[in-house]
Design a protein around this nucleic acid. Structure first.
Length: 294
DNA sequence: AAGAACTCCTGTTGGC
DNA sequence: TGCCAACAGGAGTTCT
């Protein structure tokens, strides 16, 4: 489900109900999601106050008073839903939860001291939750190899050129590699490449000149990556199928897709007249305009 | 050792 | 209407 803009939207939705609240009750309904839950997961969360909720790449990081961090990843289908005490209380045996998803996939329920209930639902169970020591978070195996955040100064044409220099893998695959840029996923890579007029099929190495300096392509691509992510965050993320922010609001950036999911439709670039194509790279769909992406 | 293929799991959709 | 194959926003692990 979520790429950086969706995870950031979820973070902003959860922050007001989780931060400064205590976990009054934690319900863990199965032993594993993608991975086993941590040892004594419920006990280590219960009674804890969350000091802050941050995002790194597609991870949500809840810093706890105990010095531990609750690391959460939504995988493909993970979603959080907030409900208030008394409101929309689900009757026993009811088939659909507040998110309109089957409640059999409600795997974790946090009851907070401020009266909010936060439910984690994940049909495919590619998401997970872990606990780590905050002061060693940078050494955690999930965190330590992550590349730069795409928003902000760290992602620059020289950085991207250096990391892609000599790479024969496709530009599409390189941008999906979380060790290079952290937080991009299939949709926003397609959209950024389209905006930059770059072919997803060309070798990633084209971003660097022989000297290692950034090429024109790198200079063009970097601002488009930032722009598409900023636009999507502004829109509250993309609601595909039934994704929604924790409060139930729908993001609407999916209406702004130029290529994703638009196979067979005409390229929107003025004067182009090309037709959007779908190809498969690394087992995943890539959408692009063969006429104006080179 | 880079790069590609495979893997986890369930739900939805589109074609016949 | 029913059935079945293809596909879905991720990424760690295992191969070549």
């Amino acid at each position: 489900m979520p790429e950086l803009p969706e995870v950031e939207t979820v973070r902003r939705g959860l922050e007001p109900v989780l931060v400064d609240a205590h976990f009054e009750r934690v319900e863990q309904r199965r032993a594993n999601l993608r991975f086993e839950f941590p040892e004594s997961f419920v006990e280590r969360l219960s009674g804890q106050r969350m000091l802050s909720l941050e995002r790194r790449a597609k991870y949500l990081l809840g810093f706890l008073e105990s010095g531990e961090v609750l690391i959460m990843h939504l995988g493909m289908s993970g979603r959080f839903t907030i409900s208030r005490a008394g409101a929309n209380a689900r009757k026993p045996g009811e088939f659909l939860n507040e998110a309109g998803k089957t409640s059999r996939h409600d795997h974790v329920v946090f009851s907070m001291s401020n009266g909010a209930t936060v439910t984690y639902n994940d049909a495919r169970r590619f998401g997970f939750m872990m606990l780590a020591q905050a002061d060693a978070l940078g050494d955690h195996k999930l965190i330590r190899n992550l590349g730069v955040e795409p928003l902000g100064e760290d992602l620059s044409p020289p950085y991207l050129a250096e990391r892609c220099a000599g790479k024969k893998t496709s530009l599409k695959a390189a941008l999906l590699d979380q060790r290079i840029v952290a937080g991009l996923g299939n949709i926003y890579v397609c959209e950024a490449l389209y905006r930059a007029g770059l072919s997803p099929k060309c070798a990633a190495g084209v971003l660097a000149r022989a000297s290692g300096a950034p090429s024109q392509r790198a200079a063009k691509l970097v601002p488009e990556i930032k722009a598409v992510l900023e636009d999507a965050i502004e829109a509250g993320g993309s609601s595909l199928r039934d994704y929604h922010a924790p409060e139930g609001d729908l993001g609407y950036f999916q209406h702004s897709f130029a290529v994703y999911g638009r196979e067979g439709l005409e390229c929107a670039r003025a004067g182009c007249g090309g037709t959007i194509r779908r190809i498969v790279q690394g087992g995943r769909s890539t959408f692009y305009c063969p006429r104006c992406q080179h």
